[in-house]
């Protein structure tokens, strides 16, 4: 019915006025089509709800059980111990914090400088070359980065710096920094470009150098986008699995002394990935791993909401 030929659609041999039947049919089709599309789109919402529901469902036995207090207060993670299994997540949280912190210490300055360079220094042609480089960096699979960390970076660190082990905080942190860089750069650059040209011109007009214009004017004006960039970078680093699993050494400990980055740690994602294969479905250990999943989920969900709020501000600025 719908697929009448183009001449007819624009033709004059058909009355322009619709009959009530046609009108009704068109209305019903329109409504049906829209609700179908809405239903499909709504699947994303359903997916998110299902994710939350099923992760929480699998973890619920643990969260209602006797180990919850220990979970949040102990640093001992010995889930496979026969007599005294312990499920303290603090050391694992610490591990995630360590590698993320190191990653951000490296990635934020480098990322911001690169973003400034891309938005304000580089010429159009150079930018056309560098942007694909960033995209390719973002496209390299995480397992390839992990592979590099284990087989290239770790032996190099061990021989070059004499560390006890090549798979340590520094290794994982540096690789995570590289992986977070593309996200940070592109979001930060977007928000800096969103700061209008006239604001830059005003700054230059007042006699400031480029450094002054950027540091005093543009970056403060773009702060919400830059914070969002850092948050997205943190999310990438916290949620990354393969690299930390392969490169962080997987030793459940809080390094001592605290500044020793050559120690191995274990992160939340690596714990899930590494332990899940050895657990029995429905055991306390299994549920504890899902509880770590909840922590991850809640953490990234919260950060996501914040970054979304900040990025909405950037978008409004761009439109204004």
């Amino acid at each position: 019915m719908h697929s009448s030929r183009p001449q007819e659609a624009a033709g004059f041999n058909r009355p322009l006025l619709l009959s009530p039947g046609q009108d009704l049919r068109g209305y019903v089709f329109d409504r049906l089509g829209r609700s179908f599309l809405f239903f499909i789109t709504f699947l994303s919402v359903v997916a998110v709800l299902l994710i939350f529901f099923f992760i929480i469902r699998e973890a619920s036995g643990f969260l209602a059980g006797p180990y919850v207090k220990q979970f949040f207060s102990s640093t001992h993670w010995y889930p496979e111990s026969r007599e005294h299994p312990e499920y303290g997540v603090l050391a694992i949280l610490g591990g995630s914090a360590y590698v993320t912190l190191v990653a951000m210490l490296v990635a934020v300055p480098v990322g911001l400088f690169s973003a400034v360079w891309l938005s304000d220094v580089a010429s159009f042609r150079v930018r056309q070359i560098i942007k694909p480089v960033i995209e390719i960096l973002a496209a390299i699979p995480s397992v390839a980065f992990g592979f590099f960390a284990v087989l290239v970076l770790a032996p190099w660190m061990q021989t070059r710096f004499g560390f006890d082990t090549g798979t340590n905080i520094l290794n994982a942190g540096v690789i995570l920094a590289v992986m977070a860089l593309p996200t940070i750069i592109s979001v930060a650059e977007d928000s800096m470009s969103a700061v209008g040209m006239e604001i830059r011109e005003a700054a230059y007009g007042l006699g400031s150098t480029r450094a002054e214009a950027m540091i005093r004017v543009v970056i403060p004006a773009a702060h919400s986008g830059i914070i969002a960039a850092v948050i997205l970078g943190v999310m990438r680093a916290v949620g990354e699995t393969m690299v930390v699993w392969m490169a962080s050494g997987n030793a459940t400990q809080i390094p001592s002394p605290w500044w020793d980055l050559s120690k191995s740690v274990r992160t939340m994602t690596a714990t899930i990935a590494g332990d899940m294969g050895e657990t029995v479905q429905g055991s306390v250990h299994y549920q504890a791993l899902f509880s770590i999943g909840i922590l991850l989920l809640v953490f990234t969900f919260g950060l996501n909401l914040i970054s979304e709020h900040l990025l909405a501000r950037v978008r409004r600025k761009k439109e204004a």
Binding site: A47, I51, F54, I55, T241, I272, G293, L296, E308
Partner: peptide
């Protein structure tokens, strides 16, 4: 956006559980 931000390992957990 949330879906985009969920860590990949959590997708793995979900895929297994669901």
């Amino acid at each position: 956006n949330t879906l985009a931000g969920v860590p990949s390992i959590v997708f793995g957990l979900f895929g297994m559980a669901f």
